[in-house]
Amino acid sequence: MAQHIAILDYGMGNLHSIAKAFEHVAPEAHVQITDRAEELHAADRVVFPGQGAIGQCMQRLRTQGLDRLLGELIAQKPVLGVCLGLQAVVAHSEENGGTDCLGLLPGTVTRFPAGLPETPGGRAIRIPHMGWNTVRPTQDHPVWAGLAAGERFYFVHSYHVAAAHPAIAGQTHYGVEIASALASGNLFAVQFHPEKSQHAGLRLLRNFVAWQGA
């Protein structure tokens, strides 16, 4: 039977690109943008995207009861967090005057400090971190299959999770060392946008579609 890929829609950002990218890598799959619990439960895998501010993101997840649902989904099936979907799974973010996140993993989200050199002796970083940066996988994981260390992916964000994290799966340098990917059980979350990262990003999405979970 064709795979059913559900993209969680909670009103945070544009889901068009990510849906198109999944339709491209999994043409046989049923790709559905939804906020309905029964459809998310029925799906083979779930994508948890997000753009914008974390305060509004958490408020919407809670209002729609999706905060508890996400925990249940991760216990059942592979879940891919993207961008804000990575930041939302840790415990807390300093954005919007301090926001409690889902706490599915430990950790905090902080803003890039202004004025840091991008590379030793280099110019100061610009914020947001926008563009193609390198990712170094820090653990073997099926979602990294075929992707070399130093592959570039497209990032756009002003807040980050520090690389010193127990679930780190990929690391990137931008003034500081950041967690560009976290992995724990059925959850794989990336700070970058695979749906906008051309060949490398599509390979990652294909790997996620093939991944059977932990």
């Binding site: 991008e118 590379t119 280099g122 971190h129 563009g131 193609w132 940066n133 390198t134 130093g150 570039r152 340098h173 931008y174």
Partner: peptide, 8 residues
């Protein structure tokens, strides 16, 4: 290995 400069 810094952030790539973009060509648009």
């Amino acid at each position: 290995m810094a952030l790539a400069r973009r060509i648009i």
